[in-house]
């Protein structure tokens, strides 16, 4: 059974039909990427999985159970963590408080302490800045904090929205290495990216979203080799 199974999902923003019946399957243990242009509906898909948006039709099953109608905090409790677009760092918090709030839905103190240790091992920069205000972090550090904070929820499925956005190429490399490490440790990842090149290098499987519909899906290697993807998303003539 797939960890996440989306069937014929429709989402409306008022009169705008943002998702027009998408199907998306995520097998446990994989990194699945969702690529596409601005406004294709990538973030909408993630926000619907997290319960921030309510679909107008379709099914959305996580671990065999429907997530539709569940409040976001309940979805987090079930093991779906979301590092949102623009990172969503609480600038009024310290780095340590930002990490702590990632574990808000949990009560197992020992487990939280272990996951905090793991997040700080993955992102040593955060350890140096624990007591600092999160507003003082650089863009790359904020992205690390957003991912680290999501790990504090101990997700089985981690949703990452544009982790490369606005970062220097070197920092992007570091972030993607860590994404692979998180996956290797057993967390399934749904990665939304505009940087199709990095995303297809990292993921096992990929979906291409074009104006609210899935245009293509295949293994990441097949997508990277396909003419259509190369022309439209990888900038190869």
């Amino acid at each position: 059974m797939a960890l996440l199974e989306i069937r014929d999902l429709h989402v409306h923003y008022g009169a705008i039909h943002a998702l027009q019946g998408i199907d998306l399957i995520i097998e446990a243990g994989q990194i699945v990427t969702l690529i596409g242009a601005n406004g294709a509906g990538k973030s909408t898909t993630l926000r619907t999985i997290s319960g921030l948006l309510r679909p107008s039709a379709g099914t959305l099953a996580y671990d065999g159970q429907s997530l539709i109608g569940q409040p976001p905090h309940e979805i987090v409790r079930r093991g779906v963590a979301h590092a949102p677009e623009g990172r969503g760092i609480f600038a009024n918090f310290t780095v340590a408080e930002n990490l702590a709030i990632g574990a808000y839905a949990r009560r197992d103190k020992g487990g939280i302490a272990r996951d905090l240790e793991w997040a700080l091992t993955l992102f040593p920069r955060l350890r140096e800045r624990l007591t600092q205000s999160a507003a003082t972090l650089s863009g790359g550090e904020q992205q690390m904090l957003a991912i680290g904070r999501a790990l504090l929820a101990r997700p089985r499925l981690l949703l990452l929205d544009e982790p490369s956005l606005g970062l220097a190429p070197q920092v992007v490399q570091t972030i993607f290495q860590i994404i692979r490490a998180i996956n290797a440790a057993g967390t399934t990842i749904l990665l939304v990216e505009q940087n199709a090149h990095m995303a297809l290098q990292t993921a096992h499987y990929g979906y291409v979203l074009e104006v609210g519909r899935i245009a293509l899906h295949a293994t990441a290697a097949e997508l990277a080799a396909s003419d259509r993807v190369r022309r439209a998303y990888l900038g190869v003539a």
């Binding site: 997290s50 319960g51 921030l52 409040p71 976001p72 905090h73 987090v76 409790r77 963590a81 979301h82 949102p84 969503g88 609480f90 600038a91 009024n92 918090f93 408080e97 702590a100 709030i101 990632g102 574990a103 808000y104 839905a105 949990r106 904070r149 929820a153």
Partner: peptide
Amino acid sequence: RGMRAVSYSPPTAALMGV
């Protein structure tokens, strides 16, 4: 902490499990 998170941004707080 949950209150301060909600006051900063309700949707982001919700994504944290608040």
